[in-house]
Design a protein around this nucleic acid. Structure first.
Lengths: 195, 195
DNA sequence: TTCGTCATGTAATGGGTTACATGATTAC
DNA sequence: GTAATCATGTAACCCATTACATGACGAA
């Protein structure tokens, strides 16, 4: 699966797993993780929160900011179920994990992913990029004569970008293989052993 | 402006300005230009064609492939209006021109854009990327301690990608300045018989 | 004969953005 | 006092993908 919605859901769970937040703050935190530009709108955020609550993955904490504020400032916190769901997702190397958006989201929470799964995802992503590279190169070869300078330049730039990602992935994979002892590289809490 | 739809419309006009095509072939041509992966679906393509026709920018040519095919193979060609609209779009350096998708589409038809406009778009895009770069760097500085290795790595990769685009743009701008005489770098060299 | 590609289209569905509606708090 | 930011939510709209329906043609 890994539809847009799921990604947003899991990213939200991931952020909330570091501590309770209210919607507005969650949005900022997500924006910081996924990149300062490309913020998501409240039109997706609040429905997402409702969805997560309906699943029983988060719960309202009430106004923790004191009684001074009349306007509700609804703070949400992960439930036990929510935590489980997030951990399960973070450690499940589904084939959708190498999709552009999916991969970025997973990477953002990689410190909560087991080392073996991290490696598999990194390698899967590398294959994906290599396939894409092959397609791009073939397409360029086929249409070289038909294309003008700018189109060619654009496509070359694209190829270089993909190559750059592959070598970046290589360095990450290398680093991952050199530290295979730690299950979780950054064990903030969570000392599960689970396989 | 420059919604998704408009971009698709103009890209289609651009492709059709090189000669009449039927829907299926147009889709392939678009895919080749915008990248071999990320094809658009028929669910957007055919409505787009209907839209363009409603505007009077394209017209049906009937089955030019001979009477052998029973199944209609609807060939579309640019009208005079369509040509005008495309040229106008290609030479209009609106502020939306530096958006990610918009910029890519414009670049794909840069040979039909006047040199002065090309330069302005290139420089506008560079500013955009520099702003973005500044935001990313600031965000990284702000959250450095809070972020784990992977998040940091991801954001550094993002920054490097943006830097790469800036230097790529610099080289394009430089090239553009060195050949300021030609209005159109690639004048309608088009080998087609057009109509 | 069956599979892959060519070829055109429609309807349902999903889901994100935009605009709207409301109001508190802080800084100048 | 007023502008900016904080803060929550809903509803309409846009539009792209997906699935479906149909059918020809060439090759294995």
């Amino acid at each position: 699966m890994a539809a847009r919605t799921d990604l947003l859901d899991f990213a939200s769970l991931g952020v909330l797993s570091e501590g309770p937040l209210h919607g507005y703050a969650l949005r900022k935190a997500l924006a910081e993780i996924l990149g300062p530009f490309r913020a998501l709108s409240y039109g997706s955020l609040y429905p997402c929160l409702r969805r997560l609550q309906a699943h029983g993955w988060i719960e309202q904490l009430g106004a923790v900011d004191g009684p001074t504020t009349k306007r509700a400032r609804v703070v949400y916190a992960l439930t036990g179920d929510g935590k489980d769901v997030f951990v399960e997702w973070a450690n499940q190397p589904g084939s959708d994990a190498w999709d552009d958006e999916s991969f970025a989201t997973r990477l953002a929470f990689f410190s909560r992913t087991e080392a073996s799964v991290r490696l598999r995802i990194l390698e899967g992503r590398r294959s994906r990029m290599e396939e894409r590279l092959a397609l791009m190169r073939e397409s360029m070869k086929r249409g070289r004569d038909r294309m003008d300078t700018f189109l060619l330049q654009m496509q070359e730039h694209g190829v270089e970008g993909a190559e750059r990602e592959v070598s970046w992935l290589n360095s990450l994979i290398l680093a991952e293989r050199n530290v295979p002892k730690t299950e979780l590289s950054n064990p903030p809490q969570v000392k599960r052993s689970r396989k």
